[in-house]
């Protein structure tokens, strides 16, 4: 639903980069690889946390 706070595998805090990543790579048209490099998310375990995430709050909120 919300982006996981930490990487499942290594425990690095990834959520703090989510909003910028979402804005630049998902909403915008920047290359996700370049954005992640710039944000300092190095390992592929942390990268998949952001790349594969989908925010669902907007989808569920009408059924509250």
């Amino acid at each position: 639903m919300m982006v996981p706070v930490r990487c499942f595998t290594c425990g690095n805090v990834v959520a703090e980069h989510w909003e910028e990543f979402d804005e630049r790579a998902n909403e915008g048209d920047e290359d996700p690889e370049a954005v992640l490099d710039e944000l300092g998310v190095e390992r592929y375990c942390c990268r998949r946390m952001l790349v594969s995430h989908r925010d669902l709050v907007d989808v569920v909120s009408p059924y509250q």
């Binding site: 919300m2 982006v3 706070v5 805090v13 959520a15 703090e16 989510w18 909003e19 925010d55 709050v57 907007d58 909120s61 509250q64």
Partner: peptide, 14 residues
Amino acid sequence: ADENVPIIDLKDDQ
């Protein structure tokens, strides 16, 4: 230590 971690997205009246 990190101030930018989103906890929860709140809608109107939440």
